[in-house]
Each structure stands twice: as C-alpha cells, then as structure tokens.
Amino acid sequence: MYVYDLGRAVAARDRLFEALPEGFEVYYALKANPHPDVARALHEGPGHGCRAEISSSGELSAALTAGFAGAECLYTGPGKTAAELNKAMECGVRMFSVESLSDATHVGLAASRHGTVADCLLRINAPATAASTGIRMMGKASQFGIDSETLPETMRQLTTVPGTRIVGAHFYTMSNAADEAALIGEFESAIALASRLESKLGLPLEFLDIGGGFAAPYAAPGVRAEYPRLRSELERMLDRYLPRWRTGSLRLAVESGRHLVAESGCLLVRVVNIKAGRGRTFVILDAGINALGGLSGIGRLLPVAARLDGGEQSLVATLSGPLCTPGDTLGRDVNLPELQVGDIITIPNTGAYGVTASLLAFLGRETPYEVVLRGAEVVSVSRLDVQRSYRVMKPEVL
C-alpha cells in the first residue's frame, strides 16, 4: 500500500517556488506520479500553483482530471503520434516542446487540422558541460533535442513550419542533481546558450524552460536537496544574459517531478516469508518490482542497501518480492531489525516513480492500494486497474 501525504507535496512545491526568482513558473512532471489527487494538490491552493508537463495521452487525461486546463500543459517527448497530437489539440493543449524538424512538422499538421497554431519550444541538445553529478541528459547523441551545432543550418526551417509558432527554447541538462553548484552551472550554460541563439541565429525567445534536475532520495531514508543560492544565482545570470526578464517580457520556467513528490509517499509492504540458506537471509515481501519497479528497465536500479526504521538493526538480508523471477529484488545486504512473518516494513521516499514506474502487469498480481492523506483526513483510497484479459477488437481499428 502506498500512502501519500499531500501536505508534504505542497510544502515541497512552495519551497521550490521560494528558491526561484519571482515570476518563474513550475511545471510538474506527471511521469513522477500521475495520481490525480497528488497532481491536484500541486495545482491548487493559495499562493503558487504548478502547471503540468506531460508526454502522453494518459498523462494528459490525468492532468485534466486533476484540474489542469489544456492551456496549462506543456506536451513533451520525441515520439508524439498523430493520434496523441489530435487528442491534445482537442483538449486545448497549445504548448509543445519539439525535438526535431519532423516532430515540429507533426505538431504543425495536427494544429492545422484543428484550425489553430501551436506554440513550440525548441528542445536543444547542448554540448556537454563539466558537471559530474546527477544523470546527464544532454551533450551526447540522443533521441532528445535538436543538436545545437545543427541549428545554424536548420533554424530557418524550424521557424517556418506551417501550423507552428516558435516561441522559445527548452533545455533539460540533468536529473537528480544534489550538488547545487553543478545545477547552477548547468542552468547558466543553458541561459547563455539561449541568449546566443537569440542574438546570432534569430531564435524567437518569448519563453525559456531551463529544465529541472532538482534532487530527492528514492526508496531510501533522507530529505530532498535544498538550493539556498539558486534564487540569487539565477537572478545574476539572467541579468547578465537576458536582462529584459526584469520587465516580464520573457516567461521563465523550470520543471520538477521527484523533488516535489518523493518525500510525500511511502510504501508499506508485508513480510510473507523469511528464508535462510547458503549463508544468506532472504526476506520475502508481498510486493516487489511489480509495485516498486524503480524504472529498472532503463538502468535506474534501486539502492543495493538501505536502512529501514523499526528498532535495532541486527539482521542483514536481501529484500525480495513475490514474483517468480530472480530479478525481483528490492535491495541486497539491507540492515533490518529482527523480523517475523506478518511484520510491516515501511520504504520511505517513494512518492515518485512508484506505481506507474513498475511492472504492474507482470505475473498478474494485484496492484498496490494508493491512500491519499491530508493531515489526518483520508482523501481517497484507490487501486490502478490493469486489464487482466485481452479485449478483442475488429481488425479495422488498426
């Protein structure tokens, strides 16, 4: 069972707004946790509210259910299909991040079919910088972004695609950067490059999304990173490279997922078996990678060790799930208290990349419950429905 504390998510949102210069927009990346109650809490309430960053029709539906308007969504991703773009246009989405000339063309065709013009940000794949922390998202060959060195040849084509209006640039340099200096350095590189592209190549620059990278622990004890110098440093670099931001003529944005919601969630799992053999102890749980997959399919593995609360840590064991595969392991050499069958273990900081980042349909087990709290109030109890039978369709639907 996942438990989400909306107060923690809202506190993280408000703290991030405080760390940014006045006027910055924050886009919540629904990939981190698309639960409508969680997204709604980040969107609503007094003071600052988030917009939505989405990259599928499913995330668009979740955003709309949570109360975001289509006009508050930024649609990203390198493989937008005609059907997805049509749905987005129907729902009022008008802001897209485009990753290539062909991607921009697809957006323009969809917009033209709906008698409108789509505002597009060029996602730029900038050269690598010296940052050594976090997960690198730029500076190498990738399906993401337009290589910056090609822009002198392609800018004219990109800015004249029918059905589109280029309004700015989108960068996403790194993910999960706990080192504030590294993150600041990445942001400065992006802002400086945006300024050069505007002055030398004529990039229209009404909107600048400098991405994210704000860190938080995952499935292990800890607290989200703080960035006490970020506000003053962003003001300094914007004053240097894009001074008109002070007039309000340039929209500025960041995006964040895990930083906003990781601390808000925990996963409660039950011990169903304890097995010892050949010098190792295995604590077998009622949930594994089917409930806490950790995006392991793209190399984001769970920690191989984590301390969990619950008394004196006198047991070292492997935490295994219930699936019939040796890959169903949540942690190795984990320090634990002495446990018995039926005990409950709490895995902290699982409000991001939990349920929907997991192998939900593998081996057909029940999906975990998701319980949403606001203080002591239970806001909702839900369970994501995964179809267990195939719905037969007529061939012509293809």
Rank of each mutant, 00 (worst) to 15 (best):
1 M>S: 12
17 F>I: 04
20 L>Y: 00
28 Y>F: 12
31 K>M: 06
36 P>M: 12
49 G>Q: 01
68 F>R: 07
74 L>I: 11
76 T>P: 04
77 G>F: 02
80 K>R: 11
84 E>C: 01
84 E>A: 13
91 C>M: 14
100 S>C: 07
104 A>P: 01
114 H>P: 02
123 R>G: 00
125 N>C: 09
129 T>A: 07
146 I>N: 02
147 D>W: 10
153 E>P: 02
160 T>K: 06
169 A>D: 05
170 H>S: 10
170 H>F: 09
175 S>Y: 11
176 N>T: 10
179 D>G: 07
186 E>G: 05
187 F>K: 02
188 E>C: 13
191 I>S: 01
201 L>T: 05
201 L>P: 01
209 D>Y: 00
211 G>W: 00
223 V>E: 14
236 R>H: 06
241 Y>D: 05
243 P>D: 06
244 R>T: 09
246 R>I: 04
253 A>D: 11
255 E>F: 12
258 R>L: 06
263 E>I: 03
265 G>Q: 08
269 V>A: 09
284 I>Q: 13
285 L>Q: 10
289 I>E: 02
289 I>F: 00
297 G>E: 13
302 L>G: 07
309 D>P: 09
314 S>R: 15
315 L>P: 04
317 A>E: 11
318 T>M: 13
321 G>V: 04
334 V>M: 04
335 N>R: 15
337 P>N: 00
338 E>N: 12
344 I>S: 07
364 G>C: 03
367 T>C: 03
370 E>D: 08
370 E>Y: 01
379 V>N: 10
384 L>E: 12
390 Y>C: 09
392 V>M: 13
